[in-house]
């Protein structure tokens, strides 16, 4: 049985990523898909990029996120000071090989009936958020795949479009398998692994089982105190450390 662990918005949070990987392996993950934003905000960009690169070499799917793109291009004067500081710091942590890996990431990957993108399917490189049903329908209409997986939005969410043209949205309950029958189109937002923002500090990811046509949203508690301490030690903005404890 194929079980695909879909992980997104890892944001250089080693502690969260380690916890998610261990959880997904224990759940029997057979494949991996990464929806981008491997770096930015957190204190371990090089480690996270190395991990993902290794798994991509072994067959995992991965797409580029806006933070990855920014790390490759470098900061621009238009950016807010905080963002500029984070990007410059992140870029300095990455060696040329790691930057090349990020630069080579595609904006979308399709595997069978599944589309992986970072932000949306209608303009994957433009970074528009899927913030509601209208955006979700726009994204679903842009693909023939029945299953789209996207990140960028850090809160877990599930959108669907039925045969009658009516769309719905749902805030998933963690750990409850949700059937995703293939006669509907689905947009799965697993939520951020490295910087959850729905008030729950536990790391997010989703496990998709194409055979059984179902998805389970998982929440994995991790040592966010260590992750925050590293952010502070690196001299990154304190706000980025503080929010991990609250998941905001």
């Amino acid at each position: 049985m194929t079980k695909i662990a879909v992980v997104t918005d890892l944001h250089a949070n080693r502690e969260a990523v380690e916890a998610v990987f261990a959880h997904a392996r224990a759940q029997g993950a057979t494949e991996w898909a990464f929806l981008g934003d491997f770096v930015g905000y957190g204190a371990d960009p090089a480690w996270v990029v190395d991990q993902v690169r290794e798994m991509v070499d072994a067959g995992a799917a991965a797409v580029c996120g806006n933070h990855d793109e920014a790390a490759v291009i470098g900061s621009t004067p238009q950016m807010r000071a905080e963002a500029r500081a984070v990007i410059d710091w992140t870029r300095a942590q990455l060696d040329p090989g790691q930057l090349d890996f990020l630069a080579a990431l595609p904006f979308q990957v399709q595997r069978e009936d599944r589309l992986y993108v970072h932000a949306n399917a209608f303009a994957p490189s433009q970074w528009e958020y899927v913030q509601g049903r209208a955006d979700a329908v726009r994204s679903i209409h842009a693909t023939t795949c029945h299953y789209t997986f996207c990140g960028h939005v850090h809160e877990p969410r599930l959108y669907h479009l039925g045969a009658t043209g009516k769309a719905g949205d749902f805030t998933p309950t963690p750990e409850v398998p949700i059937p995703l029958p293939g006669y509907r189109q689905w947009l799965v937002i697993p939520g951020s692994a490295g910087q959850p923002r729905d008030g729950n500090p536990a790391a997010c990811y989703a496990m998709f089982e194409p055979g059984a046509q179902r998805v389970t949203y998982h929440r994995v508690p991790y040592d966010h105190e260590s992750a925050a301490a590293k952010i502070r030690a690196a001299g990154l903005p304190d706000r980025l450390a503080a929010r991990l404890a609250e998941g905001i």
Binding site: G162, K166, D169, P172, T173, V176, I178, P179, R184
Partner: peptide, 11 residues
């Protein structure tokens, strides 16, 4: 079902 999407909600 409380923990599954309500397909009828908007229908």
């Amino acid at each position: 079902h409380e923990h599954l999407p309500d397909l009828l909600e908007e229908e």
